[in-house]
Nucleic acid binder design. Structure first.
Length: 615
RNA sequence: GGGGGUGUAGCUCAGUCGGUUAGAGCGCUGGCCUGUCACGCCAGAGGCCGCGGGUUCGAGUCCCGUCACUCCCGCCA
């Protein structure tokens, strides 16, 4: 897969044709790029510029692979040439300008791996535009350097084929998204970067105000309120490739600090209208930039069903394992641990383990579960028409038959059991499902399985405080509207709130918004907030809704994650030009950094550092 | 805030049970080589084995602490 630079489709189109070669008016730096030259150029004198990618020194004869954004061209010089000495000495990654004659390579020396491999450039003159010191990471290597080196010298890392290609893929994906959104009748608008802190959600990044001592702007966690106000302003269909800022800890699929969303909002729509607008954009992009299957239409899976069958609200549908609830079978059973859990309102979930019918595998799963902080993972092994294991021996035959029925398992298989409080049991079962999928190598390959998760609950119970809280976005419209808020148990109320999930990665959250002030005040009241909280914290939006707001809704798929999936990489840093490290530091630019005392004084800020950092 | 992994040459890594002078590939320096394309061959320079402490006759290796990078939990409406 030694694809030469410049051939990958994602690498993009060629540069506009450079000026024609002619000895008198030759361009200062180049007449062609390093991917341009073909047999048809043989005989022409050309000029190309780029980096020294690799050198092969034969003593009397030196080959140089010259690399630019577009590709690689082999240049050659021998001891007779005046430029020979310099060419032999120049260090890798130096930037040079080469003028020379395009010559045809003899049949045996053609390199079929290079698009320019039928020709080479005989060096007439050789100019070093910028000499390189020894580089701290190898640009011409497939092998990644350590993260710290890669980030500190990101501009070198970005020269490497693989990373360069990922970034170009990102560029092409964003261009495609823009085109598709505009074709669907959306308009792109920009929203403020300096805005107000909002009490909900993630931790804000704050920006002190010079003009208003003691006051702060916040960077937007998302343009949420602005896009709703755009709808109230009558623009009907908005989108933006929007930067979002959240001061939360990072993960492999969660950048520290900042990330980009395809933010969009539509007026006069219901949930299905949003799906109908977004699904073709996402499906189109996934199909355009990969060879993998993208089955559609995306299935719609209610939240509760997802939590039951997949143990997650972001199920990886490539794994052909479905969890079943078997709580009822353990009710009052002789297997006391589970019986007690069920009696106490807990649940027992059964995870099918195809071809897992061995003690070794089951013990391994059990210790894995303990490593996850669970008490353990029960199991039942099927062999020779019977069920074995400590659980099986305490269950009546009918219950075992029912478990077989529910999981579809038989001889040679196993069933694992996750028991406990509903959410915990479901999550452990979900993690076990993923582990089994990977361990057994039964994850479907070469496919992007996207789905909609719908009917998220409007509220949830905070385990610690026992208080009712918004489970997602407080601006979502509750299903059933005002009547539901007034008459139902808050924990039973669903919201018009939805996610898009792809292969176990949450791409996006969205909702039909609550555009009615009366319902808004009531929704907050249920969560224990008086109208003054709404008026104070969401003044702009609640006021706007009092002057005629269209029903509206939207969604905001994560750009970085889409690119990550399409680039088939495991970490967001691979698809971001200048990412920060896990501790939210930019090792290249040295951010965050201390500032001059005058700057702080201007901002009316005095530092109160923790004892450790003070020294 | 918590748990796991990693840290040895400029880079990627090996280093056995704790035992002589710490190795390899790439890169770098010098030499040889006129058809290579991950060129080949010879020689050389380059090491606070992350840092500090401990155990030991002896520590890259074992123990404790600490720092850095990373993955995960918490967190992320």
């Amino acid at each position: 897969m030694a694809a030469p630079r410049g051939v990958a489709a994602s690498r993009g189109r060629r540069a506009r044709p450079p000026p024609r070669s002619s000895d008198r008016t030759m361009h200062r730096y180049r007449t062609h790029t390093c991917s341009d030259l073909r047999q048809s150029h043989v005989g022409e004198t050309v000029r190309i510029s780029g980096w020294i990618h690799r050198r092969r020194d034969h003593g009397q004869l030196v080959f140089i692979d010259l690399r630019d954004h577009y590709g690689i061209t082999q240049c050659v010089t021998d001891v007779e040439d005046p430029a020979f000495q310099e060419v032999e000495k120049v260090r890798l990654e130096s930037v040079v300008c080469i003028t020379g004659r395009v010559v045809k390579r003899s049949d045996e020396t053609i390199n079929p791996k290079l698009p320019t491999g039928e020709v080479e450039v005989r060096i007439d003159s050789f100019e070093v535009l910028s000499a390189a010191e020894q580089v701290p990471l190898q640009v011409n290597s497939e092998e990644d350097a350590g993260e710290e080196t890669r980030l500190r010298y990101r501009y070198l890392d970005l020269r490497r084929e693989k990373v360069h290609r990922n970034i170009m893929l990102r560029s092409a994906i964003i261009a495609s998204i823009r085109r598709r959104m505009i074709e669907q009748g959306f308009f792109e608008f920009q929203t403020p970067i300096l805005t107000a802190s909002s009490p909900e959600g993630a931790r804000d990044f704050l920006v002190p105000s010079r003009l208003h001592p003691g006051k702060f702007y916040a960077l937007p966690q998302a343009p949420q309120q602005f896009k709703q106000l755009i709808m109230v302003s009558g623009f009907d269909r908005y989108f933006q490739i929007a930067p979002c800022f959240r001061d939360e800890d990072s993960r492999a699929d969660r950048s520290p600090g900042e990330f980009y969303q395809l933010d969009l909002e539509m007026s006069f729509v219901e949930q299905e209208d949003v799906f109908a607008a977004v699904e073709p954009v996402l499906a189109g992009v996934f199909k355009e930039f990969s060879e993998w299957q993208v089955p559609g239409p995306f299935p719609r899976i209610p939240y509760r069903e997802a939590m039951l069958k997949y143990g997650s609200d972001k199920p990886d549908l490539r794994i052909p394992i479905e969890i079943a609830d078997v709580s009822r079978l353990f009710e009052g059973s002789d297997f006391a641990i589970f019986a007690k859990i069920v009696a106490g309102g807990g649940v027992v979930r059964a995870i099918p383990g195809p071809k897992c019918g061995s003690r070794a595998i089951c013990d391994r799963m059990n210790s894995w579960a303990q490593g996850q902080g669970a008490p353990g993972l029960g199991y039942m092994i099927f062999a020779e028409g019977e069920a074995r294991g400590p659980i099986a021996s305490r269950l009546p035959a009918e219950a075992i038959a029912a478990i077989k029925q529910a999981t579809g398992m038989g001889d040679g298989d196993a069933v694992f059991f996750s028991a406990g409080k509903e959410l915990e049991a479901a999550k452990l079962a979900g993690q076990a499902r993923i582990k089994l999928g990977h361990d057994l190598d039964i994850v479907e390959k070469d496919v992007y399985r996207l789905c909609w998760i719908v009917d998220f609950p409007m509220y949830e119970l905070d385990e610690k405080t026992g208080k009712i809280e918004f489970s997602h976005n407080p601006f979502s419209m509750p299903q059933g509207g005002l009547e539901a808020l007034e008459s139902m148990d808050p924990l039973d109320i669903l919201a018009f709130q939805y996610d898009v999930v792809c292969n176990g990665v949450e791409l996006s959250s969205g909702a039909i918004r609550n555009h009615r002030p009366d319902i808004m005040y009531k929704a907050f009241a249920v969560a224990g907030y008086g109208p003054e909280v709404v008026d104070d914290k969401f003044a702009g939006m609640i006021n706007a809704f009092k002057f005629g707001a269209p029903p509206h809704g939207g969604i905001a798929p994560g750009i970085d994650r889409i690119v990550m999936l399409l680039a088939d990489v495991q970490n967001l840093r691979e698809v971001i030009l200048f990412p920060m490290n896990q501790r939210a530091e930019d090792l290249m630019m040295n951010a965050p950094n201390e500032v001059r005392p005058e700057q702080l004084r201007e901002l009316h800020i005095k530092l109160a550092l923790p004892p450790k950092a003070a020294g």
